[in-house]
Design a protein around this nucleic acid. Structure first.
Lengths: 218, 218
DNA sequence: AAATGATGACCAAAATACTAATAATAGAAG
DNA sequence: CTTCTATTATTAGTATTTTGGTCATCATTT
């Protein structure tokens, strides 16, 4: 699910935003100060940030340059063009003046997320492996590995949930786009083949079977 | 020099914009109606478009969907959110309400150009080949190569994503402007022809098929 | 007439699904 | 605690389907 970080010290506005965004199907996080936002960003990777400028601790102006690789929409009551220009040239994706129309905000959020997903890489890395959803390349250590479409889809799912058990039915459901009529028995084969290829690369068996449930990456 | 197309029927506003932009070092073109804009876009490839909504001939709302691969900043006196939302979700890069502050406009232009130039430029060079999107010329080594329209579109797409797999469906979608009814089976014919021409130039097979996904340049 | 694009037939290669045989595991019974 | 059984997991081998590449042909455009 797409997560949006709301950096806003005014509780009522923040609550309104949170309600709006969750009703639109986004997941939300909250930060009430600039310093808190920095802390959150260390552990969470939101897809988008809504940033209020007047913040306790660290102001939005100071916070913006510290945010990398995440599109930021600045929301502020400051309508003066000097601030707008500073923020836009300083790396903000967009600037919207309070009070704003909720539909417009949602539209700008949609656009920002779309543009960003076009350019940003879809690389998942864990357990010494990397998987690039764009180029369909997988490396283990530094060895490139060749996977079939189905194997790729399965490994992607496992790497998206490291150390979590992924149910067989979940796997079947998620890869149904790539491999429409994969049954539970043929899934076994794919798992088996995938195991072989991963094992061939560095000798480790990385896919753990959880009896009666599904599989897990370790 | 960076060229900006101003689509605006109000001469005084247009003149003001032209003056502003040229003083900032941009090159400008003018269109006074939607239909004129379409005509101009056939022969010129501006880096950015400033689009007024209320136009004679073809309105800005009708024009927007016809513009591809060029960022559009909509300028309008219509401040209502419905229009804004439509334009933004309809592919506009940004929306700015008249009367606007010139500094803010310049800032938004800078941002739009910066974001866009990250993804596209006139000449693409990789793997010892060059491809000029303006003149439709392709060289391999220093040999010029003759490509058909479709082959050019395909190679362009591949060169924009070097070492990345480009899905067959993506290719079909992207070249649909040049070649509207290209199917998956005729695509492989084009790939085959393209391969031949590239191979004839330096003996290398540069297009790699990625099974079940698409093609990749190497 | 020449160039370009689309299409169907064909074969080869790859991926996937199926079947059967074997090994591993959990739970129950003794 | 051991043994047994039913269930599930793994592996191997085979059959089927899908996909890729090429050729020949036809329609369309220039």
């Amino acid at each position: 699910m797409t997560k949006i970080l709301i950096i806003e010290d005014d509780t009522s506005i923040g609550n309104m935003l949170e309600k709006l965004l969750t009703s639109e199907g986004y997941e939300t996080s909250r930060a009430y100060s600039g310093t808190e936002a920095l802390l959150i960003l260390k552990y969470e990777k939101p897809a988008l940030i809504l940033l209020d400028l007047m913040l306790p601790g660290l102001s939005g102006e100071e916070l913006l340059p510290k945010i990398k690789d995440t599109p930021v929409i600045v929301m502020s009551a400051k309508g003066d063009s000097a601030t707008k220009v500073d923020m836009l040239l300083g790396g903000a994706y967009d600037y919207i003046t309070k009070p704003f129309d909720t539909d417009e905000l949602l539209a700008r959020i949609t656009v920002a997320l779309r543009k960003h997903s076009e350019t940003s890489s879809g690389i998942i890395a864990c357990k010494g492996m990397t998987l690039d959803t764009q180029t369909h390349e997988v490396t283990i250590g530094d060895e490139p590995i060749k996977l079939t479409r189905t194997e790729f889809a399965i490994l992607k799912l496992l790497m998206q949930n490291p150390d979590k058990v992924v149910a067989k039915l979940t796997i079947l459901d998620r890869i149904s786009e790539d491999t429409p009529d994969c049954t539970e028995s043929s899934l076994k084969q794919h798992i088996s083949n995938l195991r072989k290829k991963l094992k061939a690369a560095d000798g480790q068996d990385r896919i753990e079977a959880v009896w009666g449930i599904g599989f897990k990456l370790r």
